[in-house]
Design a protein around this nucleic acid. Structure first.
Lengths: 225, 225
DNA sequence: CACCACGCTTAGAAACTGCTTAGAGCATAT
DNA sequence: ATATGCTCTAAGCAGTTTCTAAGCGTGGTG
C-alpha cells in the first residue's frame, strides 16, 4: 500500500516515513507542494499525508487543486496548534482528516490505517489488449471492434484473448485446446472449430477486414489483412 | 437547530452550552451517558457533542450503541490529550470527528457547524464512497441511495464496499470471496450469490436503474446503466 | 477431375451457472 | 433464558452456455 507524505521539515518527515515503513506501507516523500501535486496525480496512492505549511503550494492549496483534478485519494492534513482558521479552510478544500501537532505517532498510524484499510482495490490501471481495431478490456471483460461493442461469452472471450496475445502467430488446434480449454486434444473433439466459428460470427462477419485466418492443416492465425 | 452536549464536568459543559447558544443553537445537556442515550434516541438532534469519559456509559459505548440503533446523527467526540488508544476505538465505534482538549471554542463551533450543514456534512469529515446515487459512509457504516437510507448488515456492507471500490470492473466470485469473506473459493459455496441477491433486494430492487450486473460465467460488476 | 482429409456449420443434448428460498447454527441483545 | 437477527448451507429451478455429433462444403493432391 503506497502513501505520499508531504512535509518540509526533514526530521519530522524522516520520522513519519520510517514509522510508516515499519508498518508495511510503501512511502513516497515530497518536500514541496508542487512536487507533491505532480506525484499525487501520477501515482495512485492509498492516502496522502500532508503538512499545512509548505513551500511551493501550501497544504490547503494542494488539497484544493487535487480535488479539482478529480482525485479522490483520502488526505490527512497535519496542522500546528492554533491554526484553527486554517483547519476550517482545510475542510472546505476537501481534506478528509486533521491531526494537530504535536501528535503521537500511534495516532497518525491509526488514522492512516482507517483511511486506507477499508476494503481493497484490485488493480488500478486498465488492462487492455488492442489489435486491428479490436479493443479488449480485461478489467471489465468488454470487447469493441471499431468502437462497436461486441458481446462475448466467457469461453469466446478466453479464446479471443489467447488469439490476441499471440497475434501474428499460427496456433494449432491442440495448442489452442490446451490453453483455452485446458484439455488434452486426444478426444476427437471439434470444440475449437466450433468456437472459432462463433467468434468469426461476432468479430469478423460484420466487418470487411477479416482478422481470424485459417491456415489449412496447420491452425489459425489472428492478424490484420 | 438542536444539539445535545454530553459532559460531566460542569464548568466545561456550561462554557460549551453558553457558546453554542450564543451562536443560535438550541442545546440540550446531559451529565451521564445513559441519559444521553435516551435523549439522543428520543429527540432528533442535528449533532451530538460528547466527552469520552463519562459516568453511566462512556462516550465510546454511547457512540457504538447509538450507531447500533441506526442513529446517523453526526457525533463529535471530545478527548483529552494522550487518549490515543481510546480515539482509535472511537473510530471503530462510528464517531464522525474528534477534538482534542484543550481546544479553542471557535474550533468546536466550526466543527459543529460543519457537522450540521446538511449535505456538506459528510463530505467534509467522513470517508465516503459515492457512485450512481449511492452514498456509503465508511465511518458510521450508513448507506443511502437517492437520499433514501438503506439498512445493510455487516457482510452486505463489506460486499457493497468492495463492489463500489472496484466499480466498473468485473469481479469474479473467487475474487469477491477472497476479499470480502477471506476464504478460498474451493469449497463449492454459494455465499457470494446469496449475498449478491440480498444486496440487490436492498440496493436495486426499488430503483429503476440497476447497479449490480451479472456477467455470465465471469462475475459481477457494479456500474451505472 | 475426383477423392479425401480437413474445416465449417447447425441443431440439440448435456452441463453448468446463477437465482431464489428455506432453514440450521451462531452470536448478540433483552 | 429467550428472542432476534445475521451468516451460511443446501436444494430446486430456470436460463444460458458449452459441447457433441452429424452433414455439408472446400482445398489440396494424385
Amino acid at each position: 500500500m503506497k502513501l505520499l507524505v508531504v512535509e518540509d521539515e526533514p526530521k519530522t518527515l524522516q520520522a513519519i516515513q520510517q514509522g510508516l515503513e515499519e508498518s508495511q506501507f510503501e512511502v513516497d516523500i515530497a518536500y514541496d507542494g508542487l512536487i507533491a501535486k505532480r506525484l499525487a496525480l501520477k501515482n495512485n496512492y492509498a492516502a496522502i499525508v500532508t503538512d499545512l505549511i509548505l513551500p511551493g503550494l501550501n497544504g490547503y492549496e494542494l488539497c484544493r487543486q487535487l480535488r479539482a483534478e478529480g482525485l479522490t485519494t483520502p488526505i490527512l492534513m497535519l496542522t500546528a496548534l492554533g491554526e484553527t482558521d486554517d483547519k476550517i479552510m482545510g475542510f472546505d478544500a476537501g481534506a478528509d482528516q486533521f491531526l494537530t501537532k504535536p501528535f503521537q505517532f500511534a495516532e497518525l498510524l491509526a488514522r492512516v490505517r482507517s483511511l486506507t484499510k477499508r476494503g481493497t482495490q484490485v488493480s488500478m490501471t486498465a488492462q487492455m489488449l488492442r489489435y486491428g481495431g479490436v479493443e479488449m478490456n480485461l478489467d471489465n471483460k468488454s470487447v469493441m471492434r471499431d468502437g462497436q461493442p461486441i458481446d462475448l461469452t466467457a469461453r469466446e472471450f478466453a479464446l479471443l484473448e489467447f488469439l490476441m496475445r499471440n497475434q501474428g502467430r499460427t496456433l494449432s488446434k491442440p495448442t489452442i485446446a490446451e490453453h483455452v480449454w485446458d484439455i488434452n486434444f486426444d478426444t476427437g473433439t471439434n470444440v475449437v472449430e466450433v468456437y472459432i466459428n462463433y467468434l468469426r460470427k461476432k468479430i469478423d462477419r460484420d466487418f470487411p477486414a477479416k482478422l481470424i485466418h485459417t491456415q489449412f492443416g496447420m491452425g489459425y492465425m489472428f492478424r490484420e489483412e
